[in-house]
Design a binder for these strands. Structure first.
Length: 562
DNA sequence: ACGCTCGCATCAGGTGGGAAACGG
DNA sequence: CCGTTTCCCACCTGATGCGAGCGT
Protein backbone atom coordinates (compact mmCIF):
# COMPACT_ATOMS: atom_id res chain seq x y z
CA UNK A 1 0.00 0.00 0.00
CA UNK A 2 2.56 2.44 1.04
CA UNK A 3 5.60 2.54 -0.99
CA UNK A 4 8.63 3.39 0.93
CA UNK A 5 10.34 6.35 -0.48
CA UNK A 6 13.55 7.76 0.59
CA UNK A 7 15.14 10.69 -1.02
CA UNK A 8 18.66 11.69 -0.65
CA UNK A 9 20.38 14.85 -1.42
CA UNK A 10 22.59 13.31 -3.96
CA UNK A 11 19.84 11.33 -5.39
CA UNK A 12 17.15 13.85 -5.18
CA UNK A 13 17.87 17.47 -4.90
CA UNK A 14 20.91 17.54 -6.99
CA UNK A 15 19.48 15.14 -9.40
CA UNK A 16 16.29 17.03 -9.52
CA UNK A 17 18.04 20.25 -10.01
CA UNK A 18 19.76 19.26 -13.11
CA UNK A 19 18.60 21.51 -15.73
CA UNK A 20 17.14 19.76 -18.66
CA UNK A 21 18.62 22.19 -21.02
CA UNK A 22 21.77 22.99 -19.31
CA UNK A 23 22.81 19.45 -19.24
CA UNK A 24 22.20 19.15 -15.60
CA UNK A 25 25.47 20.64 -14.66
CA UNK A 26 24.17 23.13 -12.28
CA UNK A 27 22.32 22.29 -9.19
CA UNK A 28 20.23 24.63 -7.25
CA UNK A 29 22.51 24.26 -4.34
CA UNK A 30 25.52 24.83 -6.43
CA UNK A 31 23.92 27.77 -8.05
CA UNK A 32 23.10 29.24 -4.74
CA UNK A 33 26.51 28.59 -3.41
CA UNK A 34 28.26 29.94 -6.41
CA UNK A 35 25.94 32.81 -6.76
CA UNK A 36 25.36 31.94 -10.30
CA UNK A 37 22.00 33.08 -11.16
CA UNK A 38 20.17 31.98 -8.12
CA UNK A 39 22.10 33.77 -5.53
CA UNK A 40 20.63 37.05 -6.37
CA UNK A 41 19.46 38.84 -3.34
CA UNK A 42 20.76 35.97 -1.42
CA UNK A 43 18.09 33.54 -2.23
CA UNK A 44 16.75 31.80 -5.15
CA UNK A 45 13.45 30.74 -6.38
CA UNK A 46 11.98 27.40 -6.10
CA UNK A 47 13.32 25.12 -8.68
CA UNK A 48 11.70 21.99 -9.68
CA UNK A 49 14.25 19.68 -10.96
CA UNK A 50 12.57 16.43 -11.50
CA UNK A 51 11.39 13.56 -9.45
CA UNK A 52 13.18 12.41 -6.39
CA UNK A 53 15.24 9.36 -6.58
CA UNK A 54 15.18 6.69 -4.03
CA UNK A 55 18.05 6.43 -1.73
CA UNK A 56 18.84 4.83 1.50
CA UNK A 57 21.54 7.21 2.41
CA UNK A 58 19.95 8.85 5.33
CA UNK A 59 22.95 10.78 6.37
CA UNK A 60 22.99 12.80 3.25
CA UNK A 61 19.34 12.87 2.83
CA UNK A 62 17.87 16.20 2.14
CA UNK A 63 14.61 17.49 1.02
CA UNK A 64 11.33 15.85 0.37
CA UNK A 65 10.40 14.99 3.82
CA UNK A 66 6.85 15.76 4.42
CA UNK A 67 5.54 16.65 7.74
CA UNK A 68 2.05 16.97 8.87
CA UNK A 69 0.80 19.94 10.74
CA UNK A 70 -2.40 18.09 11.03
CA UNK A 71 -5.32 20.04 12.24
CA UNK A 72 -3.44 23.19 11.83
CA UNK A 73 -6.28 25.37 10.85
CA UNK A 74 -8.53 27.07 13.24
CA UNK A 75 -11.98 25.69 13.34
CA UNK A 76 -14.93 27.67 14.41
CA UNK A 77 -15.68 26.87 17.99
CA UNK A 78 -19.31 26.75 17.22
CA UNK A 79 -18.93 23.23 16.18
CA UNK A 80 -20.34 23.92 12.83
CA UNK A 81 -18.68 22.44 9.92
CA UNK A 82 -15.79 24.46 8.79
CA UNK A 83 -17.03 24.17 5.31
CA UNK A 84 -20.17 26.05 4.68
CA UNK A 85 -22.79 25.12 2.30
CA UNK A 86 -21.04 26.93 -0.41
CA UNK A 87 -18.13 24.70 -0.15
CA UNK A 88 -18.60 23.51 -3.62
CA UNK A 89 -16.86 24.97 -6.48
CA UNK A 90 -18.58 24.49 -9.68
CA UNK A 91 -19.80 21.13 -8.70
CA UNK A 92 -22.56 20.23 -6.37
CA UNK A 93 -21.77 20.63 -2.74
CA UNK A 94 -21.01 17.41 -1.17
CA UNK A 95 -22.08 16.30 2.20
CA UNK A 96 -19.40 13.72 1.99
CA UNK A 97 -16.79 16.35 1.65
CA UNK A 98 -18.11 18.37 4.47
CA UNK A 99 -18.66 15.44 6.66
CA UNK A 100 -15.17 14.40 6.11
CA UNK A 101 -13.60 17.76 6.40
CA UNK A 102 -15.31 18.61 9.56
CA UNK A 103 -14.12 15.85 11.79
CA UNK A 104 -10.74 15.96 10.26
CA UNK A 105 -10.12 19.62 10.63
CA UNK A 106 -12.35 20.73 13.33
CA UNK A 107 -9.63 20.79 15.77
CA UNK A 108 -10.55 23.52 18.10
CA UNK A 109 -7.76 25.78 19.00
CA UNK A 110 -7.54 27.97 21.92
CA UNK A 111 -5.77 31.25 21.58
CA UNK A 112 -2.14 30.85 21.98
CA UNK A 113 -2.20 27.25 21.18
CA UNK A 114 0.23 26.27 18.63
CA UNK A 115 -1.31 26.63 15.30
CA UNK A 116 0.90 23.97 14.00
CA UNK A 117 1.36 21.27 16.50
CA UNK A 118 4.16 18.89 15.92
CA UNK A 119 3.46 16.68 13.05
CA UNK A 120 2.25 13.29 13.74
CA UNK A 121 4.45 11.47 11.39
CA UNK A 122 3.05 9.57 8.57
CA UNK A 123 0.51 10.89 6.28
CA UNK A 124 -1.64 9.06 3.90
CA UNK A 125 -0.34 7.86 0.69
CA UNK A 126 -2.13 7.78 -2.53
CA UNK A 127 -2.22 4.12 -2.20
CA UNK A 128 -3.87 3.58 -5.47
CA UNK A 129 -0.65 4.44 -7.10
CA UNK A 130 1.44 4.00 -4.04
CA UNK A 131 2.48 7.56 -4.37
CA UNK A 132 3.10 10.03 -1.64
CA UNK A 133 3.06 13.49 -3.00
CA UNK A 134 5.57 16.15 -2.25
CA UNK A 135 4.71 19.73 -2.80
CA UNK A 136 7.05 22.67 -2.95
CA UNK A 137 5.96 26.20 -2.56
CA UNK A 138 7.24 28.31 -5.38
CA UNK A 139 8.53 31.77 -4.69
CA UNK A 140 8.86 30.89 -1.09
CA UNK A 141 11.46 33.57 -0.40
CA UNK A 142 9.00 36.13 -1.59
CA UNK A 143 6.31 34.68 0.59
CA UNK A 144 8.67 34.84 3.49
CA UNK A 145 9.39 38.46 2.80
CA UNK A 146 5.73 39.21 3.11
CA UNK A 147 5.27 36.89 5.99
CA UNK A 148 7.85 38.75 7.98
CA UNK A 149 5.54 41.74 7.92
CA UNK A 150 2.33 39.75 8.15
CA UNK A 151 1.04 39.32 4.68
CA UNK A 152 -2.06 41.22 3.70
CA UNK A 153 -4.28 40.40 0.78
CA UNK A 154 -6.72 42.87 -0.69
CA UNK A 155 -10.25 41.69 -1.11
CA UNK A 156 -12.70 43.57 -3.31
CA UNK A 157 -16.21 43.07 -4.49
CA UNK A 158 -15.15 42.15 -7.95
CA UNK A 159 -12.33 40.01 -6.64
CA UNK A 160 -8.66 40.68 -6.33
CA UNK A 161 -5.87 38.36 -7.25
CA UNK A 162 -3.48 37.26 -4.60
CA UNK A 163 0.03 38.54 -4.63
CA UNK A 164 2.16 36.68 -4.16
CA UNK A 165 -0.04 34.08 -5.72
CA UNK A 166 0.04 30.47 -4.76
CA UNK A 167 2.18 28.34 -6.95
CA UNK A 168 3.48 24.87 -6.33
CA UNK A 169 5.69 22.24 -7.73
CA UNK A 170 4.68 18.70 -7.10
CA UNK A 171 6.50 15.46 -7.01
CA UNK A 172 5.78 11.94 -6.03
CA UNK A 173 2.49 11.65 -7.79
CA UNK A 174 1.69 8.70 -9.89
CA UNK A 175 2.29 9.66 -13.46
CA UNK A 176 -0.83 8.10 -14.79
CA UNK A 177 -3.16 8.55 -11.90
CA UNK A 178 -5.53 11.45 -12.10
CA UNK A 179 -5.79 14.18 -9.56
CA UNK A 180 -7.86 17.14 -8.68
CA UNK A 181 -5.82 19.96 -7.29
CA UNK A 182 -7.47 22.73 -5.41
CA UNK A 183 -6.79 25.39 -2.86
CA UNK A 184 -8.85 26.06 0.17
CA UNK A 185 -8.56 29.19 2.23
CA UNK A 186 -9.51 28.58 5.80
CA UNK A 187 -9.62 30.72 8.88
CA UNK A 188 -6.24 30.59 10.50
CA UNK A 189 -7.24 31.69 13.94
CA UNK A 190 -10.29 32.65 15.96
CA UNK A 191 -9.49 36.33 16.08
CA UNK A 192 -10.59 39.46 14.39
CA UNK A 193 -7.56 41.57 13.64
CA UNK A 194 -6.90 45.26 13.54
CA UNK A 195 -3.86 47.23 12.53
CA UNK A 196 -3.09 49.54 15.37
CA UNK A 197 0.03 51.40 16.24
CA UNK A 198 1.88 49.81 13.41
CA UNK A 199 1.06 46.36 14.59
CA UNK A 200 -1.56 43.78 13.96
CA UNK A 201 -3.49 43.20 17.13
CA UNK A 202 -6.37 40.97 17.85
CA UNK A 203 -9.69 42.67 18.19
CA UNK A 204 -12.46 40.44 19.26
CA UNK A 205 -13.58 37.21 17.85
CA UNK A 206 -13.55 36.23 14.27
CA UNK A 207 -16.80 35.90 12.49
CA UNK A 208 -16.67 32.21 11.96
CA UNK A 209 -20.05 32.11 10.33
CA UNK A 210 -18.61 33.32 7.13
CA UNK A 211 -20.30 31.96 4.12
CA UNK A 212 -19.22 31.69 0.61
CA UNK A 213 -16.92 29.69 -1.48
CA UNK A 214 -13.67 28.76 0.16
CA UNK A 215 -12.34 26.45 -2.48
CA UNK A 216 -10.68 27.13 -5.76
CA UNK A 217 -10.23 24.22 -8.07
CA UNK A 218 -7.26 24.52 -10.34
CA UNK A 219 -8.69 25.01 -13.81
CA UNK A 220 -6.61 22.19 -15.14
CA UNK A 221 -8.20 19.71 -12.79
CA UNK A 222 -8.55 16.87 -13.15
CA UNK A 223 -5.33 15.88 -14.70
CA UNK A 224 -2.63 13.28 -14.49
CA UNK A 225 0.19 13.22 -12.05
CA UNK A 226 2.53 13.67 -14.96
CA UNK A 227 0.74 16.82 -15.87
CA UNK A 228 0.89 18.26 -12.40
CA UNK A 229 4.50 17.34 -11.91
CA UNK A 230 5.92 18.52 -15.14
CA UNK A 231 5.19 22.13 -14.55
CA UNK A 232 4.53 24.64 -11.91
CA UNK A 233 0.97 24.61 -10.74
CA UNK A 234 -0.05 28.18 -10.39
CA UNK A 235 -3.11 29.65 -8.80
CA UNK A 236 -2.51 33.11 -10.13
CA UNK A 237 -6.07 33.46 -11.33
CA UNK A 238 -7.47 32.85 -7.90
CA UNK A 239 -9.38 35.87 -6.70
CA UNK A 240 -10.33 36.93 -3.24
CA UNK A 241 -13.55 38.74 -2.59
CA UNK A 242 -15.65 39.94 0.27
CA UNK A 243 -18.78 39.80 -1.77
CA UNK A 244 -20.71 36.91 -0.32
CA UNK A 245 -23.52 37.36 -2.73
CA UNK A 246 -21.35 37.24 -5.73
CA UNK A 247 -22.38 34.54 -8.08
CA UNK A 248 -20.24 35.87 -10.82
CA UNK A 249 -17.15 33.90 -11.56
CA UNK A 250 -17.75 32.02 -8.41
CA UNK A 251 -15.37 29.40 -9.56
CA UNK A 252 -12.60 31.94 -9.52
CA UNK A 253 -13.51 33.61 -6.29
CA UNK A 254 -12.90 32.77 -2.71
CA UNK A 255 -15.05 34.68 -0.28
CA UNK A 256 -13.28 36.01 2.77
CA UNK A 257 -13.92 38.42 5.57
CA UNK A 258 -11.87 41.52 5.97
CA UNK A 259 -9.48 41.69 8.89
CA UNK A 260 -9.52 37.98 9.41
CA UNK A 261 -6.50 35.79 9.16
CA UNK A 262 -6.48 32.99 6.66
CA UNK A 263 -4.36 30.05 5.79
CA UNK A 264 -4.40 28.69 2.26
CA UNK A 265 -4.14 24.96 1.92
CA UNK A 266 -3.45 22.82 -1.07
CA UNK A 267 -5.42 19.67 -1.60
CA UNK A 268 -4.51 16.94 -4.00
CA UNK A 269 -7.17 14.36 -4.52
CA UNK A 270 -6.64 11.30 -6.55
CA UNK A 271 -9.54 10.37 -8.74
CA UNK A 272 -10.03 7.33 -10.83
CA UNK A 273 -9.26 7.08 -14.44
CA UNK A 274 -12.85 7.90 -15.08
CA UNK A 275 -12.62 10.90 -12.90
CA UNK A 276 -14.51 9.29 -10.09
CA UNK A 277 -13.16 9.24 -6.64
CA UNK A 278 -12.22 6.04 -5.05
CA UNK A 279 -14.30 4.85 -2.19
CA UNK A 280 -11.31 5.06 0.04
CA UNK A 281 -10.99 8.76 -0.48
CA UNK A 282 -9.15 9.30 2.77
CA UNK A 283 -6.16 7.55 1.45
CA UNK A 284 -6.40 9.32 -1.83
CA UNK A 285 -6.36 12.81 -0.53
CA UNK A 286 -3.44 14.84 0.62
CA UNK A 287 -3.37 18.29 2.08
CA UNK A 288 -0.44 20.64 2.28
CA UNK A 289 -0.15 23.68 4.44
CA UNK A 290 2.49 26.34 4.02
CA UNK A 291 2.42 28.61 7.04
CA UNK A 292 4.24 31.37 5.25
CA UNK A 293 1.27 31.80 2.96
CA UNK A 294 -0.92 32.86 5.82
CA UNK A 295 -2.41 36.29 5.36
CA UNK A 296 -4.89 38.78 6.70
CA UNK A 297 -7.62 39.82 4.32
CA UNK A 298 -8.05 43.57 4.07
CA UNK A 299 -9.97 45.98 1.91
CA UNK A 300 -7.13 48.45 2.03
CA UNK A 301 -3.55 47.89 2.91
CA UNK A 302 -2.74 48.66 6.49
CA UNK A 303 0.96 48.08 6.72
CA UNK A 304 3.00 50.27 4.42
CA UNK A 305 5.72 47.67 4.43
CA UNK A 306 3.34 45.29 2.75
CA UNK A 307 2.26 47.97 0.33
CA UNK A 308 5.83 48.62 -0.62
CA UNK A 309 6.58 44.96 -1.05
CA UNK A 310 3.59 44.62 -3.32
CA UNK A 311 4.63 47.59 -5.37
CA UNK A 312 8.18 46.40 -5.57
CA UNK A 313 7.35 42.89 -6.61
CA UNK A 314 4.06 42.95 -8.43
CA UNK A 315 4.57 43.82 -12.08
CA UNK A 316 1.08 45.21 -12.30
CA UNK A 317 1.98 47.75 -9.69
CA UNK A 318 4.98 48.98 -11.56
CA UNK A 319 3.30 52.26 -12.06
CA UNK A 320 3.65 52.98 -8.41
CA UNK A 321 7.36 52.56 -8.34
CA UNK A 322 8.77 56.02 -8.20
CA UNK A 323 12.30 54.78 -8.72
CA UNK A 324 11.40 52.47 -11.53
CA UNK A 325 14.05 53.68 -13.90
CA UNK A 326 16.93 53.24 -11.58
CA UNK A 327 15.63 49.96 -10.34
CA UNK A 328 14.82 48.26 -13.55
CA UNK A 329 17.13 49.44 -16.20
CA UNK A 330 20.00 47.42 -14.89
CA UNK A 331 20.90 44.19 -16.53
CA UNK A 332 19.29 41.06 -15.32
CA UNK A 333 22.32 40.11 -13.38
CA UNK A 334 22.37 43.39 -11.65
CA UNK A 335 18.74 43.54 -10.93
CA UNK A 336 17.96 42.65 -7.44
CA UNK A 337 14.81 42.72 -5.58
CA UNK A 338 14.74 46.25 -4.41
CA UNK A 339 16.39 46.17 -1.13
CA UNK A 340 14.08 47.66 1.40
CA UNK A 341 16.77 49.68 2.93
CA UNK A 342 18.35 50.55 -0.34
CA UNK A 343 15.21 51.71 -1.92
CA UNK A 344 14.84 55.44 -1.90
CA UNK A 345 11.26 54.90 -1.03
CA UNK A 346 12.33 53.08 1.99
CA UNK A 347 13.09 56.39 3.46
CA UNK A 348 10.65 58.47 1.61
CA UNK A 349 7.56 56.67 2.49
CA UNK A 350 8.03 55.18 5.83
CA UNK A 351 11.08 56.72 7.32
CA UNK A 352 12.90 54.49 9.57
CA UNK A 353 10.24 51.93 9.68
CA UNK A 354 10.16 50.16 6.45
CA UNK A 355 11.29 46.62 6.31
CA UNK A 356 12.19 46.50 9.86
CA UNK A 357 10.80 43.41 11.33
CA UNK A 358 7.93 44.58 13.33
CA UNK A 359 6.89 43.06 16.51
CA UNK A 360 3.62 41.50 15.80
CA UNK A 361 1.24 41.10 18.52
CA UNK A 362 0.22 37.59 18.31
CA UNK A 363 3.71 36.65 17.51
CA UNK A 364 3.12 33.50 19.29
CA UNK A 365 0.90 32.57 16.51
CA UNK A 366 3.60 32.88 14.03
CA UNK A 367 6.23 31.44 16.15
CA UNK A 368 4.04 28.61 16.96
CA UNK A 369 2.97 28.25 13.47
CA UNK A 370 6.04 26.27 12.94
CA UNK A 371 6.38 23.15 14.87
CA UNK A 372 9.45 23.44 16.97
CA UNK A 373 10.22 19.86 16.41
CA UNK A 374 10.59 20.58 12.78
CA UNK A 375 13.52 22.73 13.46
CA UNK A 376 17.05 22.12 14.25
CA UNK A 377 18.33 23.67 17.34
CA UNK A 378 21.47 24.74 15.75
CA UNK A 379 20.12 27.87 14.30
CA UNK A 380 19.28 26.36 11.01
CA UNK A 381 15.64 26.05 10.69
CA UNK A 382 13.20 24.91 8.23
CA UNK A 383 10.97 27.87 8.36
CA UNK A 384 11.41 31.26 9.78
CA UNK A 385 9.59 32.57 12.69
CA UNK A 386 7.86 35.79 12.73
CA UNK A 387 9.99 38.17 14.58
CA UNK A 388 13.56 37.82 13.86
CA UNK A 389 12.57 35.84 10.92
CA UNK A 390 15.54 35.14 8.95
CA UNK A 391 16.18 37.78 6.50
CA UNK A 392 15.28 36.67 3.10
CA UNK A 393 18.27 38.48 1.90
CA UNK A 394 20.39 36.13 3.86
CA UNK A 395 19.06 33.21 2.05
CA UNK A 396 22.19 32.41 0.19
CA UNK A 397 24.03 31.71 3.30
CA UNK A 398 21.25 29.86 4.90
CA UNK A 399 20.30 26.35 4.53
CA UNK A 400 17.09 24.96 5.74
CA UNK A 401 17.02 21.84 7.69
CA UNK A 402 14.30 19.84 9.15
CA UNK A 403 14.97 17.29 11.72
CA UNK A 404 15.00 13.96 10.10
CA UNK A 405 11.74 12.32 10.77
CA UNK A 406 10.33 9.03 10.03
CA UNK A 407 7.39 9.56 7.88
CA UNK A 408 5.33 6.52 7.98
CA UNK A 409 7.34 3.72 6.64
CA UNK A 410 9.43 5.96 4.60
CA UNK A 411 12.65 7.26 5.85
CA UNK A 412 12.29 10.68 4.43
CA UNK A 413 14.49 13.31 5.67
CA UNK A 414 14.45 16.83 4.71
CA UNK A 415 17.37 19.04 4.44
CA UNK A 416 15.98 21.75 2.39
CA UNK A 417 18.00 24.44 0.87
CA UNK A 418 16.56 27.80 1.39
CA UNK A 419 18.07 28.90 -1.79
CA UNK A 420 16.22 26.39 -3.72
CA UNK A 421 13.15 26.80 -1.67
CA UNK A 422 12.40 23.18 -1.85
CA UNK A 423 10.39 23.03 1.23
CA UNK A 424 7.73 20.49 1.24
CA UNK A 425 5.06 20.55 3.78
CA UNK A 426 2.92 17.98 5.19
CA UNK A 427 -0.17 16.41 4.08
CA UNK A 428 -3.20 15.30 5.81
CA UNK A 429 -5.85 13.12 4.59
CA UNK A 430 -9.19 14.47 3.82
CA UNK A 431 -11.94 13.59 1.56
CA UNK A 432 -13.40 15.05 -1.47
CA UNK A 433 -16.84 13.81 -2.12
CA UNK A 434 -17.42 11.23 -4.71
CA UNK A 435 -20.18 13.46 -5.87
CA UNK A 436 -17.69 16.12 -6.55
CA UNK A 437 -15.62 13.76 -8.49
CA UNK A 438 -18.29 11.66 -9.97
CA UNK A 439 -18.04 13.51 -13.16
CA UNK A 440 -14.36 13.87 -13.16
CA UNK A 441 -12.75 12.58 -16.16
CA UNK A 442 -9.18 12.17 -16.61
CA UNK A 443 -6.76 12.47 -19.33
CA UNK A 444 -4.43 9.80 -20.22
CA UNK A 445 -1.23 11.51 -20.80
CA UNK A 446 1.86 10.54 -22.55
CA UNK A 447 2.02 6.83 -22.08
CA UNK A 448 5.31 6.91 -23.79
CA UNK A 449 6.53 9.84 -21.90
CA UNK A 450 10.19 10.24 -21.30
CA UNK A 451 9.31 10.81 -17.71
CA UNK A 452 8.58 7.23 -17.28
CA UNK A 453 12.12 6.17 -16.82
CA UNK A 454 12.78 8.00 -13.73
CA UNK A 455 9.50 8.22 -12.09
CA UNK A 456 9.13 6.25 -8.98
CA UNK A 457 5.79 4.83 -9.68
CA UNK A 458 4.08 2.82 -12.23
CA UNK A 459 3.71 4.26 -15.63
CA UNK A 460 1.12 2.09 -17.09
CA UNK A 461 -0.31 3.56 -20.22
CA UNK A 462 -3.84 4.54 -19.95
CA UNK A 463 -5.63 5.04 -23.09
CA UNK A 464 -9.13 5.80 -22.14
CA UNK A 465 -10.35 9.23 -22.72
CA UNK A 466 -13.38 10.52 -21.02
CA UNK A 467 -15.81 13.26 -21.60
CA UNK A 468 -15.12 16.66 -20.26
CA UNK A 469 -16.57 17.71 -17.02
CA UNK A 470 -19.82 19.53 -17.12
CA UNK A 471 -18.85 21.43 -14.05
CA UNK A 472 -15.30 22.02 -14.84
CA UNK A 473 -14.24 25.57 -15.40
CA UNK A 474 -11.77 24.19 -17.81
CA UNK A 475 -12.65 23.73 -21.41
CA UNK A 476 -13.59 20.26 -22.31
CA UNK A 477 -10.72 18.04 -21.70
CA UNK A 478 -11.82 15.58 -24.20
CA UNK A 479 -11.56 18.06 -26.90
CA UNK A 480 -8.42 19.32 -25.49
CA UNK A 481 -7.10 15.89 -25.48
CA UNK A 482 -8.30 14.66 -28.76
CA UNK A 483 -7.26 17.73 -30.56
CA UNK A 484 -4.66 19.34 -28.51
CA UNK A 485 -3.58 17.15 -25.74
CA UNK A 486 -0.68 15.80 -27.59
CA UNK A 487 0.43 19.14 -28.89
CA UNK A 488 -0.12 20.28 -25.42
CA UNK A 489 2.90 18.38 -24.43
CA UNK A 490 4.83 19.57 -27.33
CA UNK A 491 4.05 23.16 -27.70
CA UNK A 492 0.92 24.35 -26.23
CA UNK A 493 0.51 26.02 -22.94
CA UNK A 494 -2.30 24.58 -21.02
CA UNK A 495 -5.60 26.27 -20.90
CA UNK A 496 -5.04 28.24 -17.80
CA UNK A 497 -1.36 28.01 -18.21
CA UNK A 498 -0.93 31.26 -19.88
CA UNK A 499 2.39 32.85 -19.81
CA UNK A 500 1.26 34.84 -16.92
CA UNK A 501 0.33 31.71 -15.16
CA UNK A 502 3.66 30.20 -15.45
CA UNK A 503 6.03 32.78 -14.42
CA UNK A 504 8.94 30.53 -14.21
CA UNK A 505 9.99 29.60 -10.84
CA UNK A 506 13.28 28.74 -12.31
CA UNK A 507 14.25 32.32 -12.52
CA UNK A 508 15.92 34.16 -9.82
CA UNK A 509 13.33 35.51 -7.55
CA UNK A 510 13.43 38.92 -8.97
CA UNK A 511 13.02 37.66 -12.41
CA UNK A 512 10.28 35.33 -11.64
CA UNK A 513 8.44 37.72 -9.47
CA UNK A 514 9.31 41.29 -10.04
CA UNK A 515 10.32 40.79 -13.57
CA UNK A 516 7.94 38.19 -14.67
CA UNK A 517 6.99 40.20 -17.69
CA UNK A 518 10.49 40.12 -18.93
CA UNK A 519 10.57 36.42 -18.73
CA UNK A 520 7.09 36.24 -20.00
CA UNK A 521 8.26 38.00 -23.05
CA UNK A 522 11.08 35.63 -23.27
CA UNK A 523 8.79 32.72 -22.98
CA UNK A 524 6.49 34.19 -25.47
CA UNK A 525 9.29 34.42 -27.90
CA UNK A 526 10.29 30.96 -27.12
CA UNK A 527 7.14 29.67 -28.57
CA UNK A 528 8.29 30.94 -31.83
CA UNK A 529 11.70 29.54 -31.79
CA UNK A 530 12.81 28.25 -28.47
CA UNK A 531 14.67 31.40 -27.84
CA UNK A 532 14.44 30.92 -24.19
CA UNK A 533 17.98 29.78 -23.92
CA UNK A 534 18.66 31.58 -20.74
CA UNK A 535 19.80 28.96 -18.35
CA UNK A 536 17.83 30.60 -15.67
CA UNK A 537 14.76 30.03 -17.69
CA UNK A 538 15.19 26.34 -17.62
CA UNK A 539 13.24 24.22 -15.31
CA UNK A 540 10.68 21.60 -15.49
CA UNK A 541 8.18 24.27 -14.75
CA UNK A 542 8.96 26.67 -17.45
CA UNK A 543 10.51 24.30 -19.79
CA UNK A 544 7.67 21.94 -20.03
CA UNK A 545 5.45 24.45 -21.61
CA UNK A 546 8.08 25.45 -24.01
CA UNK A 547 9.10 21.98 -24.65
CA UNK A 548 7.87 21.89 -28.12
CA UNK A 549 10.96 21.23 -30.02
CA UNK A 550 12.38 17.84 -30.38
CA UNK A 551 15.66 19.23 -29.25
CA UNK A 552 14.15 20.51 -26.12
CA UNK A 553 12.34 17.31 -25.52
CA UNK A 554 15.52 15.41 -26.04
CA UNK A 555 17.18 17.58 -23.49
CA UNK A 556 14.38 17.09 -21.14
CA UNK A 557 14.47 13.42 -21.71
CA UNK A 558 18.13 13.23 -21.03
CA UNK A 559 17.56 15.22 -17.91
CA UNK A 560 15.32 12.63 -16.45
CA UNK A 561 17.06 9.65 -17.78
CA UNK A 562 20.42 10.89 -16.88
C1' DA B 1 1.67 33.44 -53.74
C1' DC B 2 2.26 31.71 -49.44
C1' DG B 3 3.87 31.20 -44.81
C1' DC B 4 6.47 32.90 -41.14
C1' DT B 5 8.50 36.37 -38.04
C1' DC B 6 8.50 40.65 -36.06
C1' DG B 7 6.97 45.13 -34.45
C1' DC B 8 3.37 48.05 -33.39
C1' DA B 9 -1.29 49.33 -31.86
C1' DT B 10 -5.21 48.29 -29.30
C1' DC B 11 -7.79 46.73 -25.54
C1' DA B 12 -8.99 44.21 -21.35
C1' DG B 13 -7.75 43.77 -17.01
C1' DG B 14 -4.65 44.20 -12.74
C1' DT B 15 -2.42 47.55 -9.47
C1' DG B 16 -2.27 50.88 -5.28
C1' DG B 17 -3.63 55.64 -4.01
C1' DG B 18 -6.82 58.67 -2.48
C1' DA B 19 -11.17 60.71 -1.85
C1' DA B 20 -15.80 59.84 -0.79
C1' DA B 21 -19.25 57.01 1.23
C1' DC B 22 -20.75 54.04 4.67
C1' DG B 23 -21.77 52.25 9.22
C1' DG B 24 -21.27 51.29 14.09
C1' DC C 1 -16.30 60.50 15.15
C1' DC C 2 -13.57 57.10 13.44
C1' DG C 3 -12.58 52.90 11.24
C1' DT C 4 -13.78 50.47 7.20
C1' DT C 5 -15.36 49.99 2.53
C1' DT C 6 -16.20 51.51 -2.12
C1' DC C 7 -15.24 53.81 -6.22
C1' DC C 8 -12.51 56.09 -9.57
C1' DC C 9 -8.10 57.31 -11.36
C1' DA C 10 -3.59 56.84 -13.73
C1' DC C 11 -0.37 53.58 -14.87
C1' DC C 12 1.04 49.22 -16.15
C1' DT C 13 1.00 44.26 -18.08
C1' DG C 14 -0.29 40.89 -21.21
C1' DA C 15 -3.05 39.03 -24.95
C1' DT C 16 -4.42 39.71 -29.45
C1' DG C 17 -4.81 41.49 -34.11
C1' DC C 18 -2.86 43.54 -38.00
C1' DG C 19 0.41 44.77 -41.45
C1' DA C 20 5.17 45.05 -43.16
C1' DG C 21 9.14 42.58 -44.31
C1' DC C 22 11.42 38.50 -45.53
C1' DG C 23 12.35 33.81 -47.24
C1' DT C 24 10.76 29.88 -49.83
Amino acid sequence: MLKTESFSSKGSVEERCKSPLSGGKETAAAAAASGSGYAEAGFGPQRYCGPPKASTDSTTTRSFITYSPGGSIYAAPSGTARYPTSLHLGYPPSAALRSHFSPTYQMGQSPGQSLYPPYSGSGPALDGAGARAHVYLCKQPLWLKFHRHQTEMIITKQGRRMFPFLSFNMAGLSLTAHYNVFVEVALADPNHWRFQGGKWVTCGKADSSSQGNKLYMHPESPNTGAHWMRQETSFSKLKLTNNKGSTQSISQMIVLLSLHKYQPRLHIVEVTENGVEDIDVDAKTQTFVFPETQFIAVTAYQNTDITQLKIDHNPFAKGFRDNYDSMYTASDNERLTPSPTDSPRAHQIVPGARYNVQPLLGDHHFVNNFPPSRLYDGGERAVPQSNGLLSAEDGASQRWFVTPVQHGTSGHKYEGDYSSSLLPYAMKSLTVPPAAASHHHGLSYFPDSPFSHDMPNAWAPRGAMTPSLPWSPRPGLTDAHSEKAKPHLENEPTGAGSWADTQPSCLPLDKSDSYAPACSKQRHLSTKGMKCDDAACVSAGSFSKDAHSSKAMAAYYSFYTG
